[in-house]
Simulated scan of single mutants.
Amino acid sequence: MQQVKAVVAKAMGEPVSIETINVPEPGPGEAVVKIQACGVCHTDLHYREGGINDEFPFLLGHEASGIVEAVGDGVTDVEPGDFVILNWRAVCGECRACKRGEPQYCFATHNAKQKMTLEDGTELSPALGIGAFAEKTLVAAGQCTKVDPKARPAAAGLLGCGVMAGLGAAINTGGATRGRSVAVIGCGGVGVAAVAGAVLSGASPVIAVDIDPRKLDAAKNAGATHTVDSSQADPVEQIKQICAEVYPGAEGADIVVEAVGRPETWKQAFYARDLAGTVVLVGVPTPDMKLPELPLIDVFGRGGALKSSWYGDCLPSRDFPMLIDLYQRGRLDLDAFVSEEIGLDEVEQAFAKMHDGNVLRSVVVF
């Protein structure tokens, strides 16, 4: 058992606090990781606000990289000293999805079996089964993906959630590739990552939509060929017009990624796609939100696909090393997503900056 400092949300809506927590020695199939960097993701704020569940207290943080310190019995894929990115999908290898060769859709992903606790023994609920706003954390060994140790920890860790979600929504779920057009509605961290993924795939045009000029600038820096300020113009008509200029006869984008998670913007995405086009929902809605009312004939008549993208349909063991290699070769600018590096005691301020739209990612660096 080790004691380390960590960020804990004790009650719904209350500011987070720095607490001393107990981290058990790893049991079979588990690993203890010394955290080097962890991004401040909107999901952590959802946990603090009770938007995920009410299993307080939460050990926050999940978008992380670090060094494996110790492993339990039966662990063979990683060993002490390995530089890893943490993921929240340790696949089982036994479910129907795994056995049919699609482990990215594993139905039985798992986390560490042992619980980390407060000093008084109160069990903690780690965010997404990770809990990485901590000097060290306990995870299932399958949540550790070994990557090139020369990668900058603050940038590499962002693949653990938001950047992977956006890249994967465009490439894995949407099928972006050369000869196809992509529009991204909502240009926060995930949306800008979707833009970067579309550019990486060779798609063109790549159209970024938002109401915040700062976010549109970030999307443009990520390679968007066009930007649309939807507070000033109808984004559906703008997307159609841009695509028709490149591909005469097009009635929208081949792939529209909705990275906001609201019925209004999902409806825009639906009507902004070309015939037989694809809508990808990667923005996270709240439980009370419903699909907007649509004439069923429109759903039928436009063809194509309406998809949701969970974690960018990624397989960490496949995708993380590849993307780190692209980063190391200068083809994927992960550094651009790191708006600032902060200390463990600045997480609450980072939540406020997130609300104000001032950052793509604040990253806690240990």
Results as ranks from 00 to 15, higher is better:
E69C: 02
A70P: 14
A70W: 00
A70N: 10
V71D: 05
V71G: 08
G72E: 10
D73C: 10
D73G: 10
G74H: 06
G74A: 05
G74N: 08
V75I: 09
D77Q: 15
D77Y: 00
D77N: 15
V78E: 03
V78D: 07
V78R: 08
E79V: 13
E79I: 09
P80T: 05
P80D: 04
G81D: 03
F83D: 12
F83W: 01
F83L: 12
V84N: 02
V84K: 11
V84S: 05
I85E: 08
I85V: 04
N87W: 00
N87Y: 04
N87F: 05
R89E: 04
A90Q: 05
V91L: 13
V91N: 11
V91C: 13
C92Y: 14
C92F: 09
G93Y: 06
G93R: 07
E94K: 13
E94L: 14
E94T: 02
C95L: 04
C95S: 05
R96Q: 13
R96V: 15
R96L: 12
C98M: 12
C98G: 15
C98K: 09
R100Q: 15
R100E: 14
G101K: 06
G101I: 06
G101A: 09
E102G: 02
E102L: 13
E102W: 13
E102V: 08
P103L: 07
P103Q: 02
Q104W: 12
Q104G: 11
Q104S: 10
Q104I: 02
Q104L: 01
Y105V: 06
Y105D: 13
C106R: 07
C106Q: 05
F107M: 12
F107A: 13
T109E: 09
T109K: 01
N111R: 12
Q114P: 03
Q114I: 07
M116S: 10
M116H: 05
T117F: 01
E119C: 06
E119W: 02
E119N: 09
D120F: 00
D120K: 00
G121K: 04
T122H: 10
T122I: 00
L124N: 07
L124S: 03
S125H: 07
S125N: 15
S125G: 03
S125M: 12
P126K: 04
P126M: 06
L128C: 07
G129M: 09
I130D: 00
I130T: 06
I130P: 13
G131H: 09
G131F: 11
G131N: 06
G131D: 04
A132T: 06
A132D: 04
F133K: 08
F133R: 04
F133A: 14
A134N: 11
A134G: 04
E135S: 14
E135C: 08
